[in-house]
Computed example of a mutant assay.
Amino acid sequence: MTSKSNLDQTSSSPQPLIQRPIRVGPMPRYRSREEMYAVRAQKNRSLLMYTGAVIITFLGLTYAAVPLYRLFCSATGFAGTPSTRTQAASGPEFPEWMPEWLKTLLSPSTTAEDRFAPSRLIAVDPADNPKSRRFKVTFSSSTSTALPWTFRPAQHHVYVLPGESSLAFYTAKNNSKDDIIGVATYNVTPDRIAPYFSKIECFCFDEQKLLGSEIVDMPLLFFIDKDVLDDPSCRNVEDVVLSYTFFKARRNQQGQLEPDAPEDVIQKSLGFESYELAKKASDESSKGAPRD
């Protein structure tokens, strides 16, 4: 009996845990403490370079957000920006549900020679194409409060057929005695016709310098691409408004001339007031800067 009870106690007692040695990888060996510090410093420099590259990349994307957005609008005619891209004569077929701006963006673009080829600058007579009609193009103008100019269109409106080039003029007068450089922004409404509104010659391509009390006539040569007749979204469009806004010019950090006005005012003149744009990095940094 005694031996059996001892056996039961022995079997019920907890067994000791067998601890196995933990294997670790080989530790790096350094010849000296200076070598160890040098290796660690090299790793820290690599980490710092990678972190700096990421920060610079995101800052670059922030600065490029607005130019890329304007490039997108110029390519698609979004928000009333006259397009600088057209579809090739033969391109891929897209489903009917796809919007026109996406078809334009995905289609192969033609060169400037194809866009302004003589064959495309022929008026489409309604007798030859039942879809053809005359578009009424109304001209609008305005100036910023900081620019002492008088800027008006020489004519209120013109009527043009698709493919027909038309010449119009704006008149600008410098009401001050100082020489002033101005830059113009523009937009076309309604937005859906902007991809087909093409300017051959325009004073908005370059900055304009007016001497004190000088009066100049600024020419505008444009046409409406005949492809507008094949766009279902423009089927009922007959009235087009071309708006120009002149600003006093200033030089940015890159030495380029730009409108001297708040960003929201510039975006409104371009027709982007109803769209939320990415903020510039300079605006974000100015918010965090301490005020005097």
Rank of each mutant, 00 (worst) to 15 (best):
K199Q: 14
A194R: 05
Y170D: 13
H156E: 11
I180P: 05
F151R: 03
G182S: 14
C204Q: 07
V160Y: 05
W149V: 12
A194W: 01
G163F: 04
N175S: 11
D179M: 15
S141D: 06
V188S: 08
A172I: 06
W149F: 14
F151E: 04
L161W: 06
F151H: 00
T171P: 00
G182Y: 03
L147R: 03
P195H: 08
C204L: 06
Q155N: 02
S142G: 10
P153I: 15
T189P: 09
A168E: 04
Q155P: 00
T143E: 11
L161I: 13
P153F: 15
F203C: 06
P162T: 05
Y170E: 14
T150K: 13
I181A: 05
I180F: 07
G182D: 12
D191Q: 14
K173R: 14
L167H: 08
S142P: 05
G182E: 12
S144M: 02
P190Y: 06
Y159L: 12
S198D: 00
Y196Q: 07
D191M: 14
A168Q: 06
F169L: 08
T171D: 00
F203N: 08
P195G: 05
G182K: 06
S176V: 12
H156S: 10
I200N: 02
S165E: 15
V183I: 14
C202A: 11
F169V: 01
P148M: 09
F203M: 02
A168H: 04
D178M: 11
T145C: 01
N187H: 14
H157C: 00
T189E: 09
L167P: 03
C202F: 00
D178P: 01
I180L: 13
N175Y: 05
D178A: 15
E164T: 07
Q155V: 13
T143H: 03
P195N: 12
K173A: 08
G163V: 13
P195L: 07
S198A: 02
F169Y: 14
V188M: 12
T143D: 14
T185Q: 09
C204D: 04
R152C: 08
T150V: 15
D178Y: 10
D178H: 08
A146E: 12
F197H: 01
R152G: 11
D191H: 15
N174W: 06
A154E: 10
Q155T: 13
P190G: 09
S176G: 12
E201A: 00
D179W: 15
P148R: 13
N174L: 04
L161M: 12
D179V: 15
P162R: 02
L147M: 07
K173I: 13
G182P: 11
L161K: 03
K177H: 11
H156K: 10
P153C: 14
V188F: 01
N187I: 05
A194S: 13
L147V: 08
A184P: 09
V188P: 03
T185I: 07
S176Y: 03
E164I: 05
A194E: 06
G182N: 09
Y186W: 10
W149Y: 13
L161N: 01
V158N: 09
